[in-house]
Design a protein around this nucleic acid. Structure first.
Lengths: 117, 117
DNA sequence: TGAACATATGAACAGCTGTTCATATATTAA
DNA sequence: TTAATATATGAACAGCTGTTCATATGTTCA
């Protein structure tokens, strides 16, 4: 079956105008990388924990019950996207939520999934 | 090398209390499914378009420049997580952003990635 | 009716992801 | 120094994802 060029509703001019309102590739790609980072149970749990207080890697390891390696890899992902930040404190590496955007992201998503149960 | 049970900073009691503040598995899993849905360039672009106005599938197809199948699959994913909703209008299926949570999610993420360039 | 348009869906494949294991690096304290 | 603790990283593998292709289903109108 052949799909024609456009459906009845399509107005090429208006479509063009709408496309301009979509952020450019680079931005969209960075956004999907951020959501990608938030798409893991382990990393989400890390953020929920850090939302309560800043923590070192081994505290997170204890709380999450996964290997230290998994925590560290997860933190790296979150760090690379500036979702968490780091501070050295002696032999400990302290992680904390980067900013309010991150808290809001988590909060909105939580409200969304809890809304309908 | 052997990793001991807990590091100096770990206080088992406090850790336990923190764990209780993390939503339970079911909720975390639903949240990661939502973020997972937001983690695709195509689906993000769909949401950016729908943010401007509700659209039928073939309008989206035109705007996105991917196959109709890809759009439809993407929409199903978004629909299943209640990120978009659907309305029939004659032979057209009109999609629109589900609620304000979704707009805020997008907005927060956009601000986050645009903050530092 | 049936032809044309609009949308959905299943299969399949290439590419990506998260975990663990093994190991390296960094810091402290003795 | 060295030992012990704390964290990071590379490799590798199983499992998941997004796209397209092919096709099915739904809707309108002549």
């Amino acid at each position: 079956m052949f799909m024609q060029d456009k459906c009845d509703r399509v107005n090429p001019e208006k479509i063009k105008a709408l496309i301009k309102r979509v952020p450019d590739t680079e931005v969209v790609t960075r956004m999907s990388a951020v959501f990608q980072a938030l798409q893991s149970d382990t990393r989400l749990r890390i953020l929920f924990l850090l939302r309560e207080k800043e923590m070192c890697v081994c505290e997170l390891e204890q709380a999450l019950n996964v290997t230290q390696s998994a925590v560290s890899h997860g933190l790296r992902t979150l760090r690379q996207l500036d979702l968490v930040r780091v501070r050295r404190e002696g032999k400990f590496t302290i992680y904390y939520i980067a900013d309010e955007h991150v808290r809001t992201l988590i909060e909105m998503c939580l409200e969304h999934v809890e809304e309908k149960v």
